[in-house]
């Protein structure tokens, strides 16, 4: 129960950061916080389940895909900052 509360609190804290932060680096860091909380909950479920080794494998896959997402996010961040946009309120339009 305590792990559940901790994980949900971390996810909620990350969501708060995503909603309130304006700097893109801070938003990306908040997304990482959310992902960490969700991964912790997944690992806790795996530990409480009947096949913890399978849960660890699944959590590894989630971790790898999350790292790929973080790399793409940082690439987007660098690309946007090169164009002089480092805050979310400076990104007001999309193309295509």
């Amino acid at each position: 129960m305590t792990t559940l509360v901790l994980s949900c609190a971390i996810v909620a804290a990350g969501l708060y950061g995503v909603m309130t932060r304006r700097d893109l680096v801070a938003v990306l860091a908040s997304v990482e916080v959310m992902l960490g909380g969700a991964s912790l909950l997944l690992a806790a479920y795996a530990a409480a389940g009947t096949a913890p080794a399978a849960g660890q494998g699944y959590a590894l896959l989630v971790l790898a895909v999350g790292a790929a997402g973080a790399a793409v996010g940082i690439a987007l961040l660098v690309s946007l900052v090169r164009r002089g946009r480092s805050r979310t309120d400076q990104i007001t339009e999309v193309r295509g």
């Binding site: 305590t2 309130t20 479920y45 409480a48 660890q56």
Partner: peptide, 29 residues
Amino acid sequence: AALISIGLAVVLVVALRGLLPAAVPVSGV
């Protein structure tokens, strides 16, 4: 934003509390 985040945490805990027993360290993994 704070209310939405706290609400999300409460909903998650209430929805998942029956599915997750007390987490204890596992061995043999």
